[in-house]
């Protein structure tokens, strides 16, 4: 007989209160995690969507790509030695459309590579968000540091950097705009081992992301909130089951006296914990995934199935740990204590 289920059926309100709190906390966690992911995409999709590999910047740049200038000879040698390698630069800037409306963009230029858009001089390829704002192929755009004009050649999906749409431009145009001949970075797709290049410091994709100050600060805060919520839910489980167990000490004692195994009492508690958590998680997954679709345009929200499953597993594990810790009382309870306490 499943006494765990019988208790849930008889004490619906008590378990619904616990379930609703788990639901609220997990829903909030999913939403904040979706926002963290969304902001992360909005901040660095350009880098995040690259294959695993190594970024290189000048050792003197103190891990700040803006300060990095790679010697052209070093760059040439590196690109020749490694298949698929590309040198690139990123600079924040502005574009003016034909109506002189100014838009903030991240200018990106690179040597010829499959990983980045390669454009001819005078052409520009933009992130699709600018198309949604009204720009179209053939539009003429200008920049106050550039003597010529840019013609919009096309749009690409999900290319954002530092919360701004990326604008891919030709290297010669970039050099004119920023008065430099050197590139800031070299990217070498993963070829197994990490190549060492004299004078350059290497970073994995995630290490490079963390050198972007706004990215690391933003993600740290949001991830901290997510993990606080996960820990809070674990504590909630521990506290709720502790309180329920305190109320049931007498019952546990009597059950032990008549011969019920301690392990059976733990199974009863775990069954209840898994049942409540599973229902609460199912509801919050359904709602947060719906929010994925109904989130307002422009709201950086991205909750992937993988993140949802990972967080759900963490919730189940932390619920299990919380409930088990509170269940230590069950192990300690003496049948005699219960008998002397009177009616349960």
């Amino acid at each position: 007989m499943n006494i765990a289920w019988k208790e849930i059926k008889k004490s619906k309100v008590k378990f619904m209160i616990l379930g609703s709190i788990v639901f609220l906390v997990s829903f909030l966690t999913f939403i904040i995690s979706g926002l963290a992911n969304g902001l992360s995409q909005d901040n660095a999709a350009l880098i995040k969507d690259l294959p695993d590999g190594q970024f290189y910047m000048n050792e003197d740049a103190e891990e700040t790509y803006n300060l990095s200038l790679i010697d052209p000879n070093t760059q040439k040698a590196a690109l020749n030695e490694h298949d698929g390698a590309a040198a690139l630069s990123i600079q924040m800037g502005f574009l003016n459309d034909e109506a002189d409306k100014q838009r903030s963009v991240a200018f990106v230029t690179s040597t010829e590579s499959e990983l980045f858009e390669n454009v001819q001089a005078g052409e520009i390829v933009l992130d699709r968000s600018l198309e949604e704002e009204g720009l179209k192929v053939g539009d003429i755009l200008t920049n106050n540091q550039f003597s010529g004009e840019f013609t919009v050649k096309g749009f690409v999906d999900q290319q954002k950097y530092s919360h701004a749409p990326v604008a891919f431009i030709n290297m010669e145009n970039y050099k004119e705009m920023y008065r430099v001949n050197e590139m800031q970075l070299i990217f070498i797709p993963d070829g197994g081992e990490t190549p060492v290049i004299d004078g350059l410091q290497s970073f994995t994709n995630s290490e490079f992301l963390n050198t972007i100050p706004s990215y690391s600060a933003e993600q740290l805060s949001l991830n901290m909130i997510v993990w606080f919520l996960v820990v809070i839910s674990g504590l909630l489980f521990a506290i709720f089951f502790y309180m329920m167990n305190v109320q049931k000490i007498g019952l546990y004692g009597i059950l032990k006296a008549i011969g019920v195994k301690t392990s059976a009492l733990f199974k009863m508690m775990w069954t209840q914990m898994f049942f409540i958590t599973a229902i609460a998680l199912a509801l919050s997954i359904a709602l947060s995934q719906s929010f994925n679709f109904i989130a307002p345009d422009g709201m950086p929200f991205s909750l992937t199935a993988v993140t949802t499953v990972q967080l759900s597993i963490v919730f189940l594990l932390i619920g299990f740990v919380g409930a088990t810790l509170s269940g230590i009382q069950i192990k300690k309870v003496e049948p005699l204590q219960a008998i002397q306490q009177g009616e349960v």
Binding site: G259, A338, E343
Partner: peptide
């Protein structure tokens, strides 16, 4: 032994409230 060979009756009934 308690489970299969012994039976207990206490001052209070001590029944399981949700059964």
């Amino acid at each position: 032994i308690r489970a299969s060979d012994f039976g207990f009756v206490f001052q209070s009934a001590h029944l399981v409230p949700f059964l």
